[in-house]
């Protein structure tokens, strides 16, 4: 067996294992993960539990179709907000977005 094939099979087995474990224990609760990331990195300016003072942008105003705008602001920074590139990673963005959308204004 060629080394590359071994590596591929191992990787495949490993990822199956990870997916399997996640599916068996509990589905990853994106909203909960997002809440934790939010509390650590975002709440100091955007407010506890997404309650905004109006000083920084009220994230509950984001609409369903504004994900690209959200990604762009977090990744590249906007106004007083720094770029979070490298700190808030792509998977964190998914979780953050899930948390924000779960609490968005109707």
């Amino acid at each position: 067996m060629k080394p590359t094939l071994v590596a591929s099979l191992t990787l495949c087995a490993l990822s199956s294992l990870i997916i399997g474990a996640a599916a068996q224990d509990a589905p990853v609760d994106l909203v909960k993960v997002g809440a934790k990331t939010y509390d650590t990195n975002c709440a100091p300016c955007h407010g506890d539990k997404l309650v905004s003072s109006g000083i920084a942008f009220d994230l509950k105003r984001l609409r369903e179709d504004e994900r690209p705008r959200f990604d762009n602001s977090v990744t590249n920074g906007k106004n007083a907000m720094p770029s979070w590139r490298g700190i808030i990673k792509e998977k964190d963005l998914d979780a953050l977005w899930a948390y924000i959308r779960a609490n968005a204004y109707p």
Partner: peptide, 14 residues
């Protein structure tokens, strides 16, 4: 102002 009292200061201009 931005965390604990956020709800109480929404009408205070920056």
């Amino acid at each position: 102002a931005m965390r604990t009292a956020a709800a109480e200061v929404t009408h205070v201009p920056t």
